[in-house]
Amino acid sequence: MKHSLIVLIISGLFGGMPALAQSPQQDGVKVGGMSPMRIFAPTGALEKQAALQYAQTLQLAENQHALGPDNHPQVIRLRAIANRLIPYTYRWNERSRSWKWEINLLGSKQINAYCMPGGKIAFYTGILDTLKLTDDEVAIVMGHEIAHALREHGAERAGKAAVANFGVKLAEIIAGAKGYDPNLAGTVAGGVANVSMLAFSREDETEADIVGLDIAARAGYDPRAGIALWQKMGMVNKNSPPQWLSTHPAGNSRIAEIRRHLPEVMPLYARAKDVDLASLPAYRTNAGNIAPVTYP
């Protein structure tokens, strides 16, 4: 009974708020509106914090001789791909027109990349070197990371964390008023909130995958590269945690989701390449043990 009461409190805080309306999309992928939780963490403030943190990261990398110079081939490559993607971000978030976009390469073995609020992009050499990414695969990764910023997932997560903390305190107060142990109530509520936050994070990751596919396809990059990308990732992340305990969906789930949305994005890709959809050849990555990806 006690646990049921606490779960209802937390669920009520996270649920019941409709998503904000999304600008109509005439073609491509369809996702819901951006989360109203963003109102608890103003995006403008996050963008300023991100710009400061990004500058500090670049300065540290430069001090450690780990910042890719402007004439580095991979830096030139990353910026060229970004320049093709950026014009297709505006339909997802008009504010991105005024962002001061930056794209940099950091020397690290980490298999990682990110885009902070305001368009601050960083790729680690580890993701390029370990996965041997093709341009199409880089575009899929970059589109995914850009989508997080466009959909303001940082503000959304900050808002959800604030609400979760409030929910834990509220559960303790209500439990105490009803004669239950407030500490136990707080522990249970905290656990429920944590699992809820993981689920929300997985939803954000899936949304970023979908929006990123749309952006990459419009820029002329093959969306099927996302399937090969996650097959590569599966080869290097064999010891990843179970999907339900991870902030990222499992690789097989992401591949299935990408396949489900190919009918929406492949026409965009064919149009960008100015070819008939039926005449597109299979996508072939540079790993011999990964089969060509066909459509349909």
Rank of each mutant, 00 (worst) to 15 (best):
A199M: 06
D204V: 01
T187Y: 11
G118F: 09
N239K: 11
N239H: 11
A177L: 14
A219T: 12
L150Y: 09
A228Q: 01
Y221D: 06
A122V: 15
G220W: 08
I210Q: 04
N237G: 12
L133N: 11
A208P: 05
L133S: 10
T125A: 04
M235A: 15
R224A: 09
K178I: 09
G119K: 08
N239M: 14
A216M: 10
G143D: 05
N183A: 14
G179H: 10
V188P: 00
D136V: 01
A217E: 07
A155E: 05
A228S: 15
N237P: 02
D209G: 11
F166L: 15
L229Q: 04
D135F: 02
G159P: 08
L170Y: 13
I227D: 06
Y124M: 15
E203K: 14
H148P: 01
A225L: 04
I215G: 05
V192G: 03
V192I: 15
D222G: 05
A216E: 05
V163I: 14
E172K: 15
L198A: 09
W230G: 00
A175Y: 02
G167E: 04
G190Q: 13
G126C: 11
I127E: 00
G126K: 07
K232G: 05
I174P: 04
I121G: 01
A228R: 02
D222P: 05
L198S: 08
L131F: 08
A164S: 15
I174K: 07
G143Y: 02
L133I: 13
D136P: 00
L184Q: 13
A228I: 01
L133R: 07
I146M: 15
G118A: 10
K238V: 14
I215R: 04
F123K: 01
G143W: 01
I121H: 01
Y221L: 09
N194H: 10
R202W: 12
N239E: 13
T206L: 15
G186V: 06
V192A: 13
V163P: 02
N183S: 11
Q231G: 03
R224K: 12
D129L: 06
F166Q: 13
A161H: 04
A164E: 10
V188C: 01
Y124T: 14
G118T: 07
V188N: 00
A149Y: 03
A122F: 06
A147V: 03
E137H: 07
F200I: 12
A155P: 02
R157C: 00
L133M: 15
T206D: 11
N183Q: 14
I215S: 08
H144S: 04
G143C: 07
Y180N: 11
